[in-house]
Amino acid sequence: MRKTKDAAPERGGLLNAVGRWGATKREPVPTRGHRESTQQPSRKGRKQLAFWQDALVVKELKALAVEQGMTQQALMSEAINLVFKKYGKPPIASA
């Protein structure tokens, strides 16, 4: 259905509100290193370590943590320390 000329909306409503593309200078988006910290105090000085495993491995890890009454974080810290020990490194991972 075509609009007739007299039914056309006023021009520039949205464009005037937003501005033409590129006509306004946008604020730079802060990068990870420059934003204000909203980090939990318990994560200060720590880095996230993420890796991919099969779904069954993740399921077993979660179940083992529950069985042992510990968090997945604590269980993985224990595992990392066992790897360090195996290769002659000091156990420095903490939950």
Rank of each mutant, 00 (worst) to 15 (best):
A23V: 02
K44S: 10
D6L: 05
A23E: 15
G19C: 05
V29N: 09
E78A: 14
T31D: 15
T38A: 14
L56G: 07
M1A: 07
W52Y: 13
A23I: 00
S94R: 11
V18M: 15
Q48R: 10
E36S: 08
K85N: 05
K85H: 03
A17H: 14
N16C: 04
A17S: 11
A93E: 09
K59P: 00
D6A: 11
A65W: 03
K3S: 08
L14T: 04
K3F: 10
Q53H: 09
K44M: 07
K86P: 00
K89V: 01
M70N: 02
P28W: 10
L75Q: 03
K44R: 12
K62D: 15
A8F: 05
W52F: 11
Q39I: 04
R11L: 12
W21K: 12
Q39H: 06
R11Y: 11
L61C: 09
L64N: 07
G33K: 07
A55V: 02
L14K: 13
K44D: 13
Q39R: 15
R35E: 07
L75D: 02
L82V: 00
R35Q: 08
T38L: 15
P91D: 09
V83K: 13
G12T: 01
D6S: 11
D54Y: 06
W52D: 11
G69A: 06
L56D: 15
K59F: 03
G22H: 12
V29W: 13
G22P: 09
P30R: 14
M1P: 03
L61N: 07
V58K: 12
S94A: 09
L75V: 00
P9E: 12
K5E: 15
R2M: 05
K59I: 00
I92L: 10
P30Y: 11
T38F: 13
G88W: 11
W52P: 00
S42I: 01
A79R: 10
G13L: 10
A95G: 03
T4S: 15
P90K: 04
F51G: 04
K59G: 02
H34Y: 05
P90R: 03
T24D: 12
G88Q: 08
H34S: 14
G12W: 10
E10I: 01
A55N: 06
T24E: 12
T71C: 05
P30G: 06
R46C: 03
V83N: 03
L49K: 02
R43V: 00
K5G: 05
K5D: 14
I92Q: 03
T24K: 15
L75W: 02
L14S: 12
H34C: 04
V83P: 03
Q40S: 09
Q48T: 04
A74Q: 14
G22D: 14
A50D: 07
M76S: 07
M1Y: 05
G69M: 06
P41S: 13
Q53M: 15
A23S: 15
V66T: 12
S37L: 07
R20T: 01
L82P: 01
T4D: 14
Y87H: 11
K44F: 13
E36T: 02
E78Y: 12
N81E: 01
Q53Y: 07
G88A: 08
P41M: 06
E67C: 00
